[in-house]
């Protein structure tokens, strides 16, 4: 279970997250929608401390961390219980596909090399990339890179996967293979947070959809509720605009 309590984030005097409260149960898939600058990516990055939240409490899998007094060990615990998939993939450029997935197991979890390799091969099989093990990221398409990114995030078997606009830098024809991979991970019962602009995908995959604007959660509900009967005026505007742009 994941719980965010009253998360605030300031950049200098700019207030980008204004008290976010969220409770997500195990296996739940939550999509976060909202215009750019609404704070949705920042929220995701506050969960694993890529951004240090200014105040609030983050709780993942029973580990409760008050962000203002978070120790290095707390941050480490949060980071190893989350797996992040980045918009720009951010694969380790100097490592092969296999090593990208293995490195968390060998250098963070201190697994033996052959054990780490076995696990990594299993995961790479799930994302369909066992034929690219010794390729470097520069030798892969964007879609393949992002699938490796998902494999790397899965490798540490995190409580929750955080997707930060996973398809936004992809060529349109490559989006589907990544969405298919995310779907197959979803089917395994992994808890997931997905920040996305793919409305149709969010509607289809999510258990819950959150609409954020200006650092607050404007509205949340099942995809059905949010997409067919949005309550807030802002949600209506956003959805009609976003679907018109499609």
């Amino acid at each position: 279970m994941i719980k965010l309590e009253n998360i605030h984030k300031y950049y200098d005097s700019q207030h980008v997250l204004k008290g976010i409260n969220l409770e997500v149960s195990k296996g739940e898939i939550v999509s976060i929608l909202g215009p750019s600058g609404s704070g949705k990516s920042t929220l995701l990055r506050c969960i694993n401390f890529l951004e240090q939240p200014t105040s609030g409490i983050v709780e993942i899998g029973g580990k409760r961390v008050d962000v203002e007094s978070a120790s290095k060990a707390d941050v480490f615990a949060l980071r190893t219980s989350t797996g992040m998939v980045f918009q720009q993939y951010n694969l380790f450029k100097n490592l092969t596909v296999l090593d990208n997935v293995m490195i968390g197991l060998t250098s963070v979890k201190q697994l033996k090399k052959d054990e780490a390799k076995k696990k990594s091969l299993d995961i790479l099989e799930r994302v369909g990339l066992t034929n690219r093990l010794n390729h470097y990221p520069a030798q892969l398409s964007g879609g393949q890179q992002q699938r490796v990114g998902i494999a790397r995030a899965l490798a540490l078997n995190p409580e929750v996967l955080l997707f930060d606009e996973p398809t936004s830098s992809l060529d349109p024809e490559l989006v589907d293979e990544v969405l298919a991979t995310i779907r197959s991970v979803a089917a395994t019962g992994k808890t997931m947070f997905i920040v996305t602009h793919e409305l149709q995908f969010a509607r289809e995959i999510s258990d819950r959809v959150i609409f954020m604007e200006d650092g607050v959660i404007v509205e949340e509900g099942t995809p059905e509720q949010l997409f067919t009967q949005p309550k807030a005026e802002r949600t209506k505007q956003f959805l009609s605009k976003a679907s018109r742009n499609k």
Binding site: L50, K93, S107
Partner: peptide
């Protein structure tokens, strides 16, 4: 992004730098 990805999987600063 290379720094962020290393941090996100929990690598220590030393491991991140060296590897």
């Amino acid at each position: 992004g290379q720094f962020e990805a290393a941090k996100a999987i929990g690598m220590s600063p030393t491991a991140m730098m060296l590897k």
